[in-house]
Amino acid sequence: MKSLSEIETTAKRASRAVGYSWGMAEEVGKSIRLSELFGFPAIKHLNQYYQNKKKENFQEIKLINKINKSDGSSFCPIVFGVNFIDQVKKIETLKKCSVENLAYPLLLLPFLSRASEIIGKKLLISFDDCKFLLNFNVSILSNIWEKEMPILSKEVEISFLANEDNFSDQDWKNLYKLVEDTFVEETDSLKEGAAGAGLTDND
């Protein structure tokens, strides 16, 4: 088994070898390590992408907009991912964005996962029939398991989810009722001696 340290170093050096700057290569190393830690086949996809990169030109998105249309060729998931992290505070105001023709969309996941941590919001990413919920870079929930990931997605949609509960008020109230069973009713004499007792509100 390869260690995560070996995975990060190898991904970084390979990225430099295919032409990314050292700073970008560092981002790739970190992200591939993360993706493998989460259990995704990132090394496999990175390897395939870099083999293709020798033969095919991929577009590089610089400024990420709400809708990012392709001129026919496919977008590089790494440049998109790094710029997404860099620009995430601006992109967040759009609430949602999409990108056409993204190559190897799996490679985008760890960048978005890190972005989720930076802004403190969950992100939902969907392409083809795959969905991923990115939880503050702590975990990634997916509706696919042991399924082959696409190497090109016609459209990837990324949504910023509002910070809200994913349970109902009633669920919470019911659970809280149980909590109240751990409390003890206070007598009047105890209330009189509690902090702040003896003062008027206007003191």
Partner: peptide
């Protein structure tokens, strides 16, 4: 902003960090 600077200066990203 640094995010705009990095768009055209990726070669120096490692030292910006």
């Amino acid at each position: 902003k640094i995010n705009q600077f990095l768009i055209d200066n990726s070669d120096l990203r490692h030292v910006v960090r």
